[in-house]
Design a protein around this nucleic acid. Sequence first.
RNA 1: GCUGCUGUAGCUCAGUGGUAGAGCGCGUCAUUGGUAAUGACGAGGUCGGGAGUUCAAUCCUCCCCAGCAGCACCA
Length: 662
Amino acid sequence: MIRITLPDGTAREVARGTTPADIAAAIGPGLAKAAIAARVDGELRDIMRPLEADAQLALVTTRDEADALELARHDFAHILAEAVQDLFPGTQITFGPSTDDGFYYDVMAPASRGPFTMDDLPAIEEKMRDIIRADKPLRREVMARDALIATWQNAGESFKAEWAAELPEGEELSVYWSGDDWMDMCRGPHLASTGKLDPAAFKLTRVAGAYWRGDQKNPQLSRIYGTGWLNKKQLDAHLLRLEEAAKRDHRRLGQDMDLFHLQQEAHGSVFWHPNGYLIWRELESYMRRAIDGAGYKEVKTPQVMDARQWEQSGHWGKYRANMFVIPDEVPNVDDEGPVISGEADWMALKPMNCPAHVLIFRQGIKSYRDLPLRIYENGCCHRNEPHGALHGLMRVRQFTQDDAHIFCREDQIVEEVQAFCALADRVYKEFGFTYSIKLALRPDQRFGSDSDWDKAENELRDAVVRAGLATPEYGWEELPGEGAFYAPKLEWHLTDAIGRTWQVGTIQSDRVLPERLDASYVGEDGARHRPVMLHRAIFGSYERFIGILIEHYAGRFPVWLAPVQAVVATITSEADGYAHDVTAKLKAAGIRVEADTRNEKINYKVREHSVAKVPHLLVVGMREAEEGKVAIRSLGSDGQRIMTLDEAIAMLSHEATPPDIR
RNA sequence: GCUGCUGUAGCUCAGUGGUAGAGCGCGUCAUUGGUAAUGACGAGGUCGGGAGUUCAAUCCUCCCCAGCAGCACCA
């Protein structure tokens, strides 16, 4: 007999080999029906898997949504693989995990037919529904490793065989049978049968290439994605959320609102239109006020530097493939022969600002009294990104960072990092974001000694702990191997208005570059010391931050950021004169306002400016002209507010003032 | 960079082996109206670029470029 303890503290003596399903049945028929899995000593398990020893048992039902979704998605993935193999014999299966909103399975299509495409999805979906309707039992079986490898080899499943062969010898390998005719190697757990899934609660969404085991050198597989839920209602809600997110797409809104454009002659670099650049300018002004207040000095450094400088910093060796290089010579002007000789020295467009800031630091002799020295730049950088990585404003080849480097003594690091945490906190909150903080630890390939990495990681962790931010509430997490080659990174991940996260801010504690570029200061003791260099950014890049803001606000910018803050729209041309007076007064008050005196109906003007997401529409007809008033219709509300012109100016001026100086 | 898909008017898209169409936008005229589209007329396109097949290519084939969805990358 074994002793099974339930969540309410009661215990039951049952025979070894009893399943959680048996126990559920013993408790009551309702629970027996509702239970879909079990947590055994905290581990999620099949409801049909026999209990072998004393354990804490909690039965999982569909009301335990996170667990239930995880199980369902994992099952959907298996059924997807089974359906694909059923429809396309010769397809090899590899892996199929659950994801945040569903599942995928990586398969290798038979050589005869080529990769799968979207056109294959409807048939696969239908076959999946057949399998679900057939209510095939999902049965766990433990196999000896060698037997399993042989099974895979016989079945022509070379990927599965390769993986099984790499698992530790003697490990208990579980497989799951779907009925008696299909099997996959899997840790589980699974639902008791395919019929536990709702055939209307999933949808295959796309097909894409993915490398076997995530390595570019390996063969590329077809990854079939699906979204999977517990019922159709959840699926529909999810599809609706996707539609909402698509409406916020910064590329679409950027075009609709005439903010910027991209074109192939300069792909990956942004053409900012007047409206978009107004947002940029407001952000720049905002950031200047922030860094001025925080004791930074702003600089401007060269776009192009000798390649030797990048060799010394270590970037040439590691990132040359993504740098724009320029021969330092006069191009051949004859019609004959190549334009470039290929013999000149190389220069490179700067991919980052750090080395240039070190060069500024190195001018003159620095004393410990000069530290911390905080050097800021709106630094325009170029990186020749892989073409497939480019994405609207989010990943571009020319971008401007709100970049600063704090040169400080070791004993100043924690204090500086803490001050940065406070600054970042203020900025993100003023834009309406919540955030989480992560610490990215040393990568495998890195410069610098382990003891320096120990110090650097501890300092960053320490500062966050002292700032009181190393808590679950702030999503505190350490990410092994994710740091930069020269320093560990603290990362700020913003959560936007619809719950998506974006990594933007960072601060990195670097002892490598000061060493490589020979930065030093004279200490109290009269000797030379290395400063530590803190790399930090809050927006990350203006391009990307604006992209995030567009999606965060869904184009409805707060008044202080809105390119056009108000439009004065006339109802009849008799009010044109008054409209121009109102417009002039608002302009004099510093409001970005336009007059719309076109010969159009007020309905048309309301619609057009609403679609254009202008925050305030000031409607004026003869009534307002005679009374010296305006009828304000604000974006997002149907009604109007009648107020005097002075009241309107006071209200708009307040809203148009940036939050940091309001 | 890899896999797949896409590229037709300023935008969104339809279409065909015999060199093109809609809606919106734009222009002109009429209309002066009270809070999400007034009407009429009109002007716009070497159908992403190059090569090939064909009597004939926007359409079929190949190469290139860009975009999209993933993957890989992201100092």
